[in-house]
Design a protein around this nucleic acid. Structure first.
Lengths: 203, 203
DNA sequence: TTTTATAATGAGTAAAAACTCACTCAAAAA
DNA sequence: TTTTTGAGTGAGTTTTTACTCATTATAAAA
Protein backbone atom coordinates (compact mmCIF):
# COMPACT_ATOMS: atom_id res chain seq x y z
CA UNK A 1 0.00 0.00 0.00
CA UNK A 2 2.80 2.47 0.52
CA UNK A 3 5.37 3.26 -2.16
CA UNK A 4 7.26 0.48 -3.85
CA UNK A 5 10.74 -0.63 -2.85
CA UNK A 6 12.10 1.01 -5.97
CA UNK A 7 10.43 4.31 -5.23
CA UNK A 8 11.87 4.40 -1.75
CA UNK A 9 15.24 3.38 -3.05
CA UNK A 10 15.10 6.21 -5.56
CA UNK A 11 14.18 8.73 -2.88
CA UNK A 12 17.01 7.59 -0.67
CA UNK A 13 19.64 7.70 -3.35
CA UNK A 14 18.47 11.14 -4.46
CA UNK A 15 18.96 12.63 -0.99
CA UNK A 16 22.19 10.74 -0.53
CA UNK A 17 23.53 12.36 -3.66
CA UNK A 18 22.44 15.80 -2.46
CA UNK A 19 24.29 15.20 0.79
CA UNK A 20 27.42 14.00 -0.97
CA UNK A 21 27.51 16.94 -3.35
CA UNK A 22 27.00 19.47 -0.58
CA UNK A 23 29.51 17.81 1.73
CA UNK A 24 32.16 17.55 -0.97
CA UNK A 25 31.78 21.22 -1.77
CA UNK A 26 32.01 22.30 1.86
CA UNK A 27 34.79 19.96 2.97
CA UNK A 28 36.94 21.13 0.08
CA UNK A 29 36.03 24.77 0.64
CA UNK A 30 36.33 24.98 4.41
CA UNK A 31 38.08 21.83 5.58
CA UNK A 32 36.68 18.98 7.66
CA UNK A 33 37.06 20.62 11.04
CA UNK A 34 35.57 23.95 10.01
CA UNK A 35 32.57 22.44 8.27
CA UNK A 36 29.62 21.73 10.50
CA UNK A 37 26.80 19.32 9.77
CA UNK A 38 24.23 22.09 9.91
CA UNK A 39 25.97 23.77 6.98
CA UNK A 40 25.98 20.52 5.06
CA UNK A 41 22.30 19.91 5.74
CA UNK A 42 21.44 23.47 4.72
CA UNK A 43 23.44 23.23 1.50
CA UNK A 44 21.79 19.90 0.70
CA UNK A 45 18.42 21.42 1.54
CA UNK A 46 17.50 18.72 4.03
CA UNK A 47 17.25 18.48 7.81
CA UNK A 48 20.06 17.39 10.09
CA UNK A 49 17.98 14.43 11.17
CA UNK A 50 17.79 13.13 7.64
CA UNK A 51 21.51 13.49 7.21
CA UNK A 52 21.98 11.21 10.21
CA UNK A 53 19.62 8.63 8.74
CA UNK A 54 22.14 8.25 5.93
CA UNK A 55 25.43 8.65 7.79
CA UNK A 56 26.02 7.73 11.38
CA UNK A 57 28.58 10.52 11.79
CA UNK A 58 30.20 13.47 10.04
CA UNK A 59 33.34 11.39 9.89
CA UNK A 60 31.65 8.49 8.12
CA UNK A 61 30.34 10.88 5.49
CA UNK A 62 33.83 12.26 4.98
CA UNK A 63 35.26 8.78 4.72
CA UNK A 64 32.77 7.79 2.07
CA UNK A 65 33.86 10.74 -0.05
CA UNK A 66 37.51 9.80 0.40
CA UNK A 67 36.58 6.29 -0.69
CA UNK A 68 35.32 7.69 -4.00
CA UNK A 69 38.71 9.29 -4.54
CA UNK A 70 40.44 6.03 -3.66
CA UNK A 71 38.25 4.10 -6.10
CA UNK A 72 39.25 6.51 -8.84
CA UNK A 73 42.92 6.02 -8.06
CA UNK A 74 42.56 2.25 -8.09
CA UNK A 75 40.81 2.36 -11.43
CA UNK A 76 43.56 4.53 -12.89
CA UNK A 77 46.21 2.24 -11.48
CA UNK A 78 44.55 -0.80 -13.02
CA UNK A 79 44.42 0.91 -16.37
CA UNK A 80 48.13 1.72 -16.14
CA UNK A 81 48.88 -1.90 -15.26
CA UNK A 82 46.69 -3.31 -18.04
CA UNK A 83 49.20 -2.22 -20.70
CA UNK A 84 46.36 -1.63 -23.14
CA UNK A 85 48.21 1.28 -24.68
CA UNK A 86 51.81 2.52 -24.77
CA UNK A 87 53.24 4.39 -21.76
CA UNK A 88 53.18 7.66 -23.63
CA UNK A 89 49.60 7.16 -24.76
CA UNK A 90 48.54 6.21 -21.24
CA UNK A 91 50.06 9.30 -19.65
CA UNK A 92 48.89 11.57 -22.46
CA UNK A 93 45.34 10.33 -21.98
CA UNK A 94 45.59 10.76 -18.24
CA UNK A 95 46.93 14.29 -18.49
CA UNK A 96 44.33 15.12 -21.07
CA UNK A 97 41.49 13.95 -18.85
CA UNK A 98 42.85 16.00 -15.99
CA UNK A 99 43.25 19.00 -18.25
CA UNK A 100 39.68 18.86 -19.46
CA UNK A 101 38.23 18.26 -16.05
CA UNK A 102 40.20 21.06 -14.46
CA UNK A 103 39.40 23.53 -17.20
CA UNK A 104 35.69 23.02 -17.19
CA UNK A 105 34.86 21.66 -13.74
CA UNK A 106 36.30 20.83 -10.39
CA UNK A 107 35.43 17.19 -9.84
CA UNK A 108 39.00 16.04 -10.10
CA UNK A 109 40.56 18.93 -8.20
CA UNK A 110 38.05 18.46 -5.40
CA UNK A 111 38.90 14.79 -5.02
CA UNK A 112 42.60 15.60 -4.74
CA UNK A 113 42.04 18.31 -2.16
CA UNK A 114 39.81 15.96 -0.20
CA UNK A 115 42.50 13.32 -0.32
CA UNK A 116 44.99 15.76 1.12
CA UNK A 117 42.53 16.70 3.85
CA UNK A 118 42.16 13.08 4.82
CA UNK A 119 45.71 13.40 6.11
CA UNK A 120 44.89 16.40 8.23
CA UNK A 121 41.51 15.44 9.48
CA UNK A 122 41.94 13.95 12.89
CA UNK A 123 45.60 13.40 13.18
CA UNK A 124 44.85 9.78 14.00
CA UNK A 125 41.30 9.38 15.27
CA UNK A 126 39.78 9.88 11.85
CA UNK A 127 39.81 8.19 8.48
CA UNK A 128 41.49 5.19 7.01
CA UNK A 129 44.57 7.20 6.38
CA UNK A 130 46.47 3.93 6.12
CA UNK A 131 44.30 2.84 3.20
CA UNK A 132 44.92 6.17 1.49
CA UNK A 133 48.67 5.79 1.89
CA UNK A 134 48.57 2.22 0.61
CA UNK A 135 46.59 3.07 -2.51
CA UNK A 136 48.75 6.11 -3.23
CA UNK A 137 51.86 3.98 -3.05
CA UNK A 138 50.29 1.46 -5.42
CA UNK A 139 49.43 4.14 -7.96
CA UNK A 140 52.93 5.59 -7.63
CA UNK A 141 54.50 2.21 -8.23
CA UNK A 142 52.29 1.53 -11.25
CA UNK A 143 53.16 4.93 -12.71
CA UNK A 144 56.87 4.42 -12.07
CA UNK A 145 56.71 1.13 -13.99
CA UNK A 146 55.00 2.95 -16.84
CA UNK A 147 57.79 5.52 -16.91
CA UNK A 148 60.45 2.81 -16.80
CA UNK A 149 58.84 1.13 -19.80
CA UNK A 150 58.64 4.46 -21.57
CA UNK A 151 62.33 5.00 -20.97
CA UNK A 152 63.15 1.53 -22.31
CA UNK A 153 61.15 2.31 -25.44
CA UNK A 154 63.15 5.52 -25.77
CA UNK A 155 60.37 8.12 -25.70
CA UNK A 156 60.93 9.29 -22.14
CA UNK A 157 63.72 11.32 -20.66
CA UNK A 158 66.13 9.45 -18.46
CA UNK A 159 65.99 10.00 -14.74
CA UNK A 160 64.96 8.23 -11.56
CA UNK A 161 61.40 7.01 -12.29
CA UNK A 162 60.31 7.34 -8.67
CA UNK A 163 61.55 10.91 -8.56
CA UNK A 164 59.71 11.66 -11.79
CA UNK A 165 56.51 10.16 -10.39
CA UNK A 166 56.68 12.29 -7.27
CA UNK A 167 57.23 15.35 -9.41
CA UNK A 168 54.39 14.38 -11.73
CA UNK A 169 51.77 13.90 -9.04
CA UNK A 170 53.05 16.84 -7.03
CA UNK A 171 52.47 19.06 -10.03
CA UNK A 172 48.97 17.74 -10.57
CA UNK A 173 48.14 18.04 -6.93
CA UNK A 174 49.61 21.53 -6.79
CA UNK A 175 47.47 22.58 -9.74
CA UNK A 176 44.38 21.39 -7.91
CA UNK A 177 45.41 23.43 -4.88
CA UNK A 178 46.12 26.50 -7.04
CA UNK A 179 42.77 26.17 -8.72
CA UNK A 180 41.09 26.13 -5.33
CA UNK A 181 43.08 29.15 -4.17
CA UNK A 182 43.04 31.33 -7.27
CA UNK A 183 39.47 30.39 -8.20
CA UNK A 184 38.50 32.13 -11.44
CA UNK A 185 41.97 33.67 -11.72
CA UNK A 186 43.37 30.20 -12.25
CA UNK A 187 44.49 29.41 -15.79
CA UNK A 188 45.13 25.73 -16.40
CA UNK A 189 48.48 25.15 -18.16
CA UNK A 190 48.43 23.20 -21.39
CA UNK A 191 48.82 19.39 -21.34
CA UNK A 192 52.06 19.76 -23.30
CA UNK A 193 53.57 21.99 -20.60
CA UNK A 194 52.32 19.67 -17.91
CA UNK A 195 54.28 16.61 -18.87
CA UNK A 196 57.08 18.19 -20.85
CA UNK A 197 59.56 17.14 -18.19
CA UNK A 198 58.68 13.51 -18.81
CA UNK A 199 59.33 13.34 -22.52
CA UNK A 200 62.36 13.88 -24.67
CA UNK A 201 62.37 17.11 -26.63
CA UNK A 202 60.14 16.77 -29.68
CA UNK A 203 58.33 13.62 -28.58
CA UNK B 1 61.91 46.42 42.23
CA UNK B 2 60.49 43.68 39.99
CA UNK B 3 62.23 42.47 36.86
CA UNK B 4 63.37 44.93 34.23
CA UNK B 5 61.41 45.78 31.09
CA UNK B 6 63.89 43.78 29.07
CA UNK B 7 63.56 40.72 31.23
CA UNK B 8 59.79 40.76 30.91
CA UNK B 9 60.09 41.34 27.20
CA UNK B 10 62.39 38.36 26.93
CA UNK B 11 59.98 36.15 28.87
CA UNK B 12 57.09 37.20 26.69
CA UNK B 13 58.86 36.64 23.42
CA UNK B 14 60.07 33.24 24.61
CA UNK B 15 56.55 32.01 25.30
CA UNK B 16 55.25 33.64 22.16
CA UNK B 17 57.73 31.66 20.16
CA UNK B 18 56.73 28.44 21.89
CA UNK B 19 53.12 29.15 21.03
CA UNK B 20 53.93 29.92 17.40
CA UNK B 21 56.01 26.80 16.94
CA UNK B 22 53.39 24.56 18.51
CA UNK B 23 50.53 26.20 16.62
CA UNK B 24 52.31 26.02 13.27
CA UNK B 25 52.99 22.33 13.79
CA UNK B 26 49.40 21.54 14.74
CA UNK B 27 47.64 23.72 12.17
CA UNK B 28 49.68 22.15 9.39
CA UNK B 29 49.23 18.65 10.79
CA UNK B 30 45.53 18.73 11.64
CA UNK B 31 44.08 21.83 9.99
CA UNK B 32 42.70 24.94 11.65
CA UNK B 33 39.27 23.58 12.45
CA UNK B 34 40.49 20.30 13.92
CA UNK B 35 43.14 21.90 16.10
CA UNK B 36 41.94 23.04 19.49
CA UNK B 37 43.60 25.62 21.69
CA UNK B 38 44.07 23.11 24.50
CA UNK B 39 46.25 21.03 22.18
CA UNK B 40 48.28 24.10 21.24
CA UNK B 41 48.75 25.09 24.89
CA UNK B 42 49.77 21.53 25.79
CA UNK B 43 52.26 21.32 22.93
CA UNK B 44 53.71 24.71 23.90
CA UNK B 45 53.81 23.57 27.53
CA UNK B 46 51.87 26.55 28.81
CA UNK B 47 48.36 27.13 30.14
CA UNK B 48 45.39 28.14 28.02
CA UNK B 49 45.17 31.34 30.00
CA UNK B 50 48.65 32.36 29.00
CA UNK B 51 47.92 31.66 25.37
CA UNK B 52 45.03 34.08 25.56
CA UNK B 53 47.28 36.75 27.10
CA UNK B 54 49.23 36.67 23.84
CA UNK B 55 46.45 36.15 21.31
CA UNK B 56 42.91 37.28 21.70
CA UNK B 57 41.62 34.35 19.68
CA UNK B 58 42.66 31.15 17.94
CA UNK B 59 41.97 32.92 14.69
CA UNK B 60 44.32 35.81 15.48
CA UNK B 61 47.08 33.32 16.21
CA UNK B 62 46.46 31.63 12.89
CA UNK B 63 46.49 34.96 11.10
CA UNK B 64 49.82 35.92 12.59
CA UNK B 65 51.34 32.72 11.24
CA UNK B 66 49.88 33.40 7.82
CA UNK B 67 51.41 36.87 8.02
CA UNK B 68 54.85 35.29 8.41
CA UNK B 69 54.28 33.41 5.19
CA UNK B 70 53.14 36.59 3.47
CA UNK B 71 56.23 38.45 4.66
CA UNK B 72 58.39 35.72 3.15
CA UNK B 73 56.59 36.00 -0.17
CA UNK B 74 56.96 39.77 -0.20
CA UNK B 75 60.67 39.48 0.52
CA UNK B 76 61.10 36.99 -2.31
CA UNK B 77 59.13 39.20 -4.65
CA UNK B 78 61.29 42.20 -3.81
CA UNK B 79 64.41 40.21 -4.52
CA UNK B 80 63.03 39.16 -7.88
CA UNK B 81 62.22 42.76 -8.69
CA UNK B 82 65.60 44.08 -7.56
CA UNK B 83 67.33 42.56 -10.60
CA UNK B 84 70.46 41.94 -8.54
CA UNK B 85 71.16 38.77 -10.48
CA UNK B 86 70.10 37.28 -13.82
CA UNK B 87 66.68 35.63 -14.12
CA UNK B 88 68.25 32.19 -14.30
CA UNK B 89 70.43 32.83 -11.25
CA UNK B 90 67.47 34.18 -9.31
CA UNK B 91 65.30 31.15 -10.01
CA UNK B 92 68.15 28.72 -9.51
CA UNK B 93 68.85 30.24 -6.12
CA UNK B 94 65.18 30.16 -5.20
CA UNK B 95 64.78 26.53 -6.21
CA UNK B 96 67.96 25.64 -4.41
CA UNK B 97 66.77 27.21 -1.18
CA UNK B 98 63.50 25.34 -1.44
CA UNK B 99 65.33 22.13 -2.20
CA UNK B 100 67.57 22.40 0.84
CA UNK B 101 64.78 23.43 3.14
CA UNK B 102 62.50 20.64 2.00
CA UNK B 103 65.18 18.00 2.20
CA UNK B 104 66.33 18.77 5.68
CA UNK B 105 63.40 20.51 7.36
CA UNK B 106 59.83 21.55 6.87
CA UNK B 107 59.79 25.29 7.52
CA UNK B 108 59.06 26.16 3.93
CA UNK B 109 56.60 23.34 3.28
CA UNK B 110 54.71 24.25 6.45
CA UNK B 111 54.33 27.85 5.39
CA UNK B 112 52.91 26.81 2.03
CA UNK B 113 50.46 24.39 3.59
CA UNK B 114 49.40 27.06 6.06
CA UNK B 115 48.88 29.48 3.21
CA UNK B 116 46.60 27.00 1.50
CA UNK B 117 44.69 26.48 4.72
CA UNK B 118 44.12 30.20 5.02
CA UNK B 119 41.80 29.75 2.06
CA UNK B 120 39.85 26.99 3.75
CA UNK B 121 39.72 28.31 7.23
CA UNK B 122 36.45 30.06 7.65
CA UNK B 123 35.20 30.37 4.16
CA UNK B 124 34.95 34.11 4.73
CA UNK B 125 34.71 34.91 8.43
CA UNK B 126 38.39 34.21 8.98
CA UNK B 127 41.69 35.56 7.80
CA UNK B 128 42.78 38.30 5.49
CA UNK B 129 42.30 35.99 2.55
CA UNK B 130 42.16 39.07 0.37
CA UNK B 131 45.66 40.06 1.48
CA UNK B 132 46.90 36.56 0.71
CA UNK B 133 45.42 36.71 -2.77
CA UNK B 134 46.88 40.15 -3.40
CA UNK B 135 50.42 39.16 -2.34
CA UNK B 136 50.25 35.92 -4.30
CA UNK B 137 49.30 37.84 -7.41
CA UNK B 138 52.19 40.24 -6.86
CA UNK B 139 54.69 37.41 -6.51
CA UNK B 140 53.25 35.75 -9.59
CA UNK B 141 53.59 38.93 -11.61
CA UNK B 142 57.17 39.49 -10.44
CA UNK B 143 58.06 35.91 -11.35
CA UNK B 144 56.38 36.21 -14.74
CA UNK B 145 58.48 39.30 -15.46
CA UNK B 146 61.58 37.37 -14.51
CA UNK B 147 60.64 34.61 -16.93
CA UNK B 148 59.94 37.10 -19.68
CA UNK B 149 63.38 38.61 -19.19
CA UNK B 150 64.89 35.14 -19.18
CA UNK B 151 63.20 34.40 -22.47
CA UNK B 152 64.46 37.65 -23.98
CA UNK B 153 67.98 36.72 -22.90
CA UNK B 154 67.48 33.37 -24.58
CA UNK B 155 68.08 30.99 -21.68
CA UNK B 156 64.45 30.14 -21.07
CA UNK B 157 62.07 28.06 -23.11
CA UNK B 158 59.39 29.94 -24.94
CA UNK B 159 55.84 29.77 -23.66
CA UNK B 160 53.26 31.90 -21.94
CA UNK B 161 55.06 33.30 -18.87
CA UNK B 162 51.92 33.39 -16.75
CA UNK B 163 51.21 29.76 -17.59
CA UNK B 164 54.78 28.86 -16.67
CA UNK B 165 54.51 30.72 -13.37
CA UNK B 166 51.33 28.87 -12.42
CA UNK B 167 53.00 25.58 -13.27
CA UNK B 168 56.13 26.53 -11.34
CA UNK B 169 54.37 27.45 -8.11
CA UNK B 170 51.88 24.62 -8.45
CA UNK B 171 54.76 22.18 -8.58
CA UNK B 172 56.42 23.68 -5.52
CA UNK B 173 53.17 23.78 -3.63
CA UNK B 174 52.36 20.24 -4.67
CA UNK B 175 55.73 19.06 -3.39
CA UNK B 176 54.99 20.64 -0.03
CA UNK B 177 51.66 18.82 0.07
CA UNK B 178 53.30 15.54 -0.96
CA UNK B 179 55.92 15.93 1.72
CA UNK B 180 53.19 16.38 4.29
CA UNK B 181 51.28 13.35 3.01
CA UNK B 182 54.10 10.91 2.36
CA UNK B 183 56.13 12.00 5.38
CA UNK B 184 59.37 10.04 5.54
CA UNK B 185 58.49 8.24 2.30
CA UNK B 186 58.83 11.54 0.49
CA UNK B 187 61.90 11.92 -1.69
CA UNK B 188 62.54 15.47 -2.83
CA UNK B 189 63.25 15.66 -6.58
CA UNK B 190 66.48 17.29 -7.64
CA UNK B 191 66.58 21.03 -8.36
CA UNK B 192 67.47 20.28 -11.98
CA UNK B 193 64.30 18.20 -12.42
CA UNK B 194 62.25 20.84 -10.66
CA UNK B 195 62.81 23.66 -13.10
CA UNK B 196 63.75 21.70 -16.20
CA UNK B 197 60.55 22.81 -17.88
CA UNK B 198 61.66 26.42 -17.56
CA UNK B 199 65.00 26.19 -19.27
CA UNK B 200 66.11 25.25 -22.70
CA UNK B 201 67.75 21.85 -22.99
CA UNK B 202 71.35 22.04 -21.80
CA UNK B 203 71.07 25.41 -20.05
C1' DT C 1 -11.13 7.50 3.23
C1' DT C 2 -8.18 4.71 5.80
C1' DT C 3 -4.09 2.13 6.27
C1' DT C 4 0.75 1.54 5.98
C1' DA C 5 5.69 1.88 5.38
C1' DT C 6 9.22 4.77 5.32
C1' DA C 7 11.09 9.41 4.30
C1' DA C 8 11.66 13.78 6.51
C1' DT C 9 11.68 17.19 10.38
C1' DG C 10 13.94 20.12 13.93
C1' DA C 11 13.65 21.24 18.80
C1' DG C 12 16.23 19.25 22.36
C1' DT C 13 20.45 17.10 24.61
C1' DA C 14 25.05 16.14 25.59
C1' DA C 15 29.65 16.81 24.62
C1' DA C 16 33.37 19.53 23.18
C1' DA C 17 35.66 23.58 22.47
C1' DA C 18 36.58 28.64 22.89
C1' DC C 19 37.43 31.95 26.00
C1' DT C 20 37.59 34.46 31.02
C1' DC C 21 39.20 35.83 35.48
C1' DA C 22 40.35 35.58 40.24
C1' DC C 23 44.17 33.94 41.78
C1' DT C 24 49.28 32.29 42.50
C1' DC C 25 54.21 32.53 41.35
C1' DA C 26 58.78 34.46 40.61
C1' DA C 27 62.49 37.38 41.08
C1' DA C 28 64.46 41.87 41.46
C1' DA C 29 65.26 45.70 44.52
C1' DA C 30 64.10 48.39 48.61
C1' DT D 1 62.10 40.03 54.61
C1' DT D 2 58.80 42.66 52.24
C1' DT D 3 57.09 44.87 48.27
C1' DT D 4 56.10 45.23 43.59
C1' DT D 5 54.93 44.05 38.94
C1' DG D 6 53.79 41.44 35.39
C1' DA D 7 54.05 36.42 33.87
C1' DG D 8 51.61 32.26 34.46
C1' DT D 9 47.61 29.14 36.00
C1' DG D 10 43.42 26.29 35.26
C1' DA D 11 38.79 25.63 37.09
C1' DG D 12 34.70 27.62 35.57
C1' DT D 13 31.53 29.83 32.04
C1' DT D 14 29.74 30.43 27.62
C1' DT D 15 29.24 29.16 23.04
C1' DT D 16 29.22 26.05 19.47
C1' DT D 17 28.41 21.70 17.43
C1' DA D 18 27.59 16.79 16.86
C1' DC D 19 24.04 13.81 17.37
C1' DT D 20 19.00 11.88 19.00
C1' DC D 21 14.19 10.96 18.89
C1' DA D 22 9.35 11.90 19.29
C1' DT D 23 6.64 13.50 15.81
C1' DT D 24 4.85 14.73 11.14
C1' DA D 25 4.47 14.36 5.99
C1' DT D 26 3.78 11.60 1.86
C1' DA D 27 1.87 8.80 -1.49
C1' DA D 28 0.49 4.31 -3.00
C1' DA D 29 -3.00 0.85 -2.53
C1' DA D 30 -6.78 -1.38 -0.01
Amino acid sequence: MPRTKEQYEQMRSATKEKIQTAAMQLFVQKGFGSTNVQDIADAAEISIGLLYRHYKSKEQLFNELVDFALAGMIQQMEYFESNEVSPKQALDQFVHEIYNDMRTGEQFANLLILMQQSFLTGGGAAVNHVEVTRVSEQLFRATAKLITRGQEQGQFRSGNPHEMVVLFYSTIHGLAAMKMMLQHNFQMPSPAALNSFLYKEGE
